[in-house]
Design a binder for these strands. Structure first.
Lengths: 129, 129
DNA sequence: CAACAACCTGGAGTGCGCTCCAGGTCAAGC
DNA sequence: GCTTGACCTGGAGCGCACTCCAGGTTGTTG
């Protein structure tokens, strides 16, 4: 059963963000369109809206700045023809994420080494000589 | 040849941070001690100072908030006896970093899938039927 | 029909982690 | 002896990504 509309609160819960954040993303041009409204003027999020915002949250969670996401959204809004440019944005971000993962992994090793030294110090079990 | 002292500029270059950041960390209680000064009042960073700040930068680069690092520095400054507490801080952070790595990796997969769909769209090479 | 909940708007406020600035001292080089 | 450059201080300012607020409308509920 696709495309049942959701209130902003339901959408926020589903996406794991706040309703303020959803309104903020819309105001800031991160969405593909103004979220449609019901008769009472309330936003009604469709599956399509949710799917896009899910991508936005993934980009955010991997550290893409708001302004870059806005740029990407603008490209998508502009319609087909600029796929190469969109791909460049995504690819650049992918590379950056991979770089970050490597860097953080390296730091993680150092931190775990530190943890190991504390364990050794707290467990003075080996022969001291 | 250990323990040759460095100027703040040299220390910053070595650590990959700005001199402002070094002064800020000191002011904010992230260091184990006030960095010693030469006769002219300039800071002179020893190997020990550098080693500690390197750990600080690793913690920062893996997302530990300043205030948590300060807490950890306070524990170390308090001297031996609280190793269990220090270990708890580091372990909690380690777990958080691992969690983040997993989350980001999952998002990365989704982003790479998206990239793949663009590649497919840009290379309409397969039989259309 | 009163109260309440959920939403709306434009705009102000917040927390974080720096980053920058003015005004000053000191040592070295010309 | 004057300029230059590296450093010093206390404090202000900034960019980011939200988060909160006042004041208002609408729809439901007892």
């Amino acid at each position: 059963m696709p495309n049942h509309p959701r209130t902003i609160a339901a959408a926020a819960a589903e996406l794991g963000v706040s309703v303020d954040t959803l309104r903020y993303y819309e105001r800031d041009g991160l969405l593909l369109r103004a979220v449609p409204r019901g008769g009472n003027g309330h936003r009604t999020y469709t599956d399509v809206d949710l799917g896009w915002i899910e991508l936005v949250t993934r980009l955010r969670s991997t550290g893409m700045p708001i302004r870059d996401i806005r740029r990407y959204a603008e490209l998508v809004r502009a319609g087909s023809g600029n796929e190469t440019e969109r791909l460049a944005v995504l690819t650049a971000h992918r590379d950056e994420v991979v770089r970050q993962l490597e860097e953080v992994s390296a730091h993680l090793v150092a931190i775990e080494t530190k943890i190991a030294t504390y364990h050794a110090r707290l467990r003075p079990r080996e022969k001291s000589a």
